[in-house]
Amino acid sequence: MQTEMGHDLHLSGHGSSTGGFYRNVHLEGLSTIDGDVVCEQCTAHGVARMHGNLRADMTAFHGKADVLGDMVTGSAEIHGTIRVSGVCDVAKILRIHGTSRLQGGVRADVLNIHGRTHVGAECVAREVELHGIAQFAQDIRAERMDCSGVLHLGGPCEAESFSCKGQVHSSGLINAERVHIRLHAKSEVQEIGCTELRVERGRGWFARRHKLVVDIIEGDHIYVENVVAKRIRGNRITLGNGVYAERVEYREELNRHHGAKVKEAVQV
């Protein structure tokens, strides 16, 4: 990044600045920045509030951070609470431990989130790893999606591989090459479209109560357990224990566990 001025900005205690071009930015304590900041490295401890955009090669926040503009950075490591009102554009890894609200959407290579997160707009990443509670209000596109915990999807989700341990709540389509869901408690998905689907119940005392309620499943190879579905359509379908399906349409093969209930099964 071109920063002609090699000055550092160091704020500690109760500090404020109007922003500008810097090499290193260190914020400690209660800091407010009123304009845009362009720097090589931005580190903040404590409460930081940025009223403009932040552009940095490397960003690290510890504590509470509020960015009211866009955050464009090479890589970011965040511990604590962060809110970004604009777009969050990270060239490499965005790692968040704690609570985050990313209102303007995310673009990243790798997205690694532990804790609670809310993404208010479109999210595009190569790899997404989520642990905890994640909420995506709109579309999400990734090559690999790996989550454990609770996942809320407000829009369609597209991935090459989608795997989830825990709960999924989706009001749109989950479209992936391979979908693997290990159920925990109750999940609800409107539609799944894939090549390979595997839905398994979790382990534990109440595993048989774990359910996935879904409108339509369409895929080539389908294996499901504990699924309540209106329609299941595919080439080879295996219905495991605890499945209830209103209508199953298969092309080649249908295997049914004796604990699976099917109202109507047709070969097409």
Binding site: A176, C194, T195, E218, G219, D220
Partner: peptide, 8 residues
């Protein structure tokens, strides 16, 4: 074609 192809 299959469902998988269509979705892909």
């Amino acid at each position: 074609i299959s469902y998988g192809q269509l979705y892909r």
